[in-house]
Amino acid sequence: MTKRRLVISIGLAMLLLTIVIFYLFYFTKPHAFPMDDKLLKEMNSFYAEAHADVIQDVVYLDKQHVFVPYISQENNYGLSFWVWKHRKWKVEEIDTNGDLRLWKINSKDSATYHFVWNFPSNDQISYMKLYAIKQRGYHISGDVHHYDPAVQLERKISLSEKTYGSIQLETEWVSVIDEWNKLNEAMQPSLFFQPFIMYQPMYFGWNTFDHSDTIIYPEHSTVNSSILNNSVGIENVMFVNESELEYP
């Protein structure tokens, strides 16, 4: 074998090895999810202030994203978020209270959005409502009057059987949000010509109700502290009072 052929062969072998390593590192199927004792050990190692003591459930949002609600030694109800990454299940964020969060698994695809929560069981919460809201707006540009109607989507979720859970953004909401985002992008004016026109974005909200249909905030929720590994698209969601709703 000539020196040139030897160099080419070594180069091809190294390229093949790189491809194999890259595939194994990024594209291998997830292994079985860790048992509770290993989850607790890793959570408390990752964030000692969590004081995680009881794993309530393991909820797969898809094959590579898992939501794990937990109870701490102080009887606080928290959230943990896990991702299959680099051939390992890794905890990406831990929150010490269970108020509603939105996990944007793919920030560019609203169909991958999931709400997750873990409310204290002793708060006597009967149900929760989720909202997608766009407030009404009105502006004038020269002789042109522009009115933006309000939008309010609502979904009711029973919490009588268990006070933690997750729910994927439903198809109707995805359609409305995607259409509004497209319209909003198309209507955005040139800042050079119309610098004062603002368009109302859509946002998410939630509230909880007792058995007499009165809005209540979970009384036993702790002040939240959290730690995150990377920016993984997990967002707080606004608690809304009746006065803030277009159609209470």
Rank of each mutant, 00 (worst) to 15 (best):
D143C: 08
Y127A: 04
D143P: 07
F204Q: 01
M202W: 05
Y138C: 06
S212W: 06
S212F: 14
I125T: 05
F204G: 01
F204N: 00
Y127V: 06
G205D: 03
N181R: 06
I157Y: 02
M187T: 13
P189V: 13
W173E: 02
Q152K: 02
G142M: 06
S158F: 00
E154G: 06
M202I: 11
P218T: 07
S166N: 13
D148H: 07
K162V: 15
A186S: 12
W180H: 14
D210L: 08
S190D: 14
L153K: 01
W173Y: 09
L169I: 07
S141C: 11
F193V: 12
K156I: 07
S141R: 14
K129E: 14
I216F: 05
E172H: 13
I125R: 00
Q152P: 06
K134H: 02
L159Y: 06
H220P: 05
L130E: 03
P195L: 10
S160N: 11
G165P: 06
D213F: 03
K162D: 02
P189G: 10
L183W: 13
E154A: 09
I167N: 01
R155T: 10
S221V: 04
L159I: 11
Y203M: 11
A132L: 10
T163A: 09
A132F: 04
F196M: 12
W180Y: 12
K162T: 09
I133K: 02
